[in-house]
């Protein structure tokens, strides 16, 4: 091969660039979540909801306005919808999954159950790198935010 003095460093830089996630993770291997996502953090919602493996007896009576799977993906859309309806259209009630009506309010409805900001919001959001700005204005439940 010709120009090995330039080609070899080039290949090394290319491989380092393409494997960025691998060595960035190696740098903090201790901070990584456990091997099985279900040990530790993944099933945080089962404390208040029916889990997939069966009802969690302690709190099956308390239900969210929508089911867990929907809320995992779409809670931000729901909150956005609530803000639109309440602040801009003046509506007050939202008809939930169980047919009951809920007051559309982050602090008075959502945070009544989901009061633990650090464990409920922040853990997921930090983990997935999604930045939220709800609590720039709202008070974040019992726990101090940050």
């Amino acid at each position: 091969m010709y120009n090995l003095d330039k080609v070899i460093p080039g290949i090394i830089i290319l491989i380092l660039f393409l494997t960025t996630p691998i060595w960035l993770n190696l740098a903090n291997l201790k901070a990584l979540p456990p091997k099985d996502p279900h040990i530790g953090q993944a099933r945080m919602c089962t404390t208040c909801h029916v889990s997939e493996k069966g009802p969690d007896e302690a709190v099956t009576s308390e239900k969210c306005v929508a089911d867990t799977q929907y809320m995992r993906g779409y809670h931000m859309k729901l909150l956005d919808e609530w803000r639109e309806k309440k602040i801009r259209k003046g509506e007050v009630y939202y008809k939930g999954l169980d047919g009951k009506s809920y007051v559309m309010s982050l602090q008075r409805t959502c945070l009544k159950c989901h009061s633990d900001y650090l464990n409920f919001c922040d853990r997921c959001h930090k983990f997935t790198g999604v930045q939220l700005d709800c609590f720039n204005c709202h008070i974040a439940g019992k726990e101090e935010k940050k």
Binding site: T20, P21, L24, N25, N28, F127, T128, G129
Partner: peptide, 8 residues
């Protein structure tokens, strides 16, 4: 990278 690296 935010999907592949923790902490982000």
């Amino acid at each position: 990278l935010r999907f592949f690296v923790f902490p982000v």
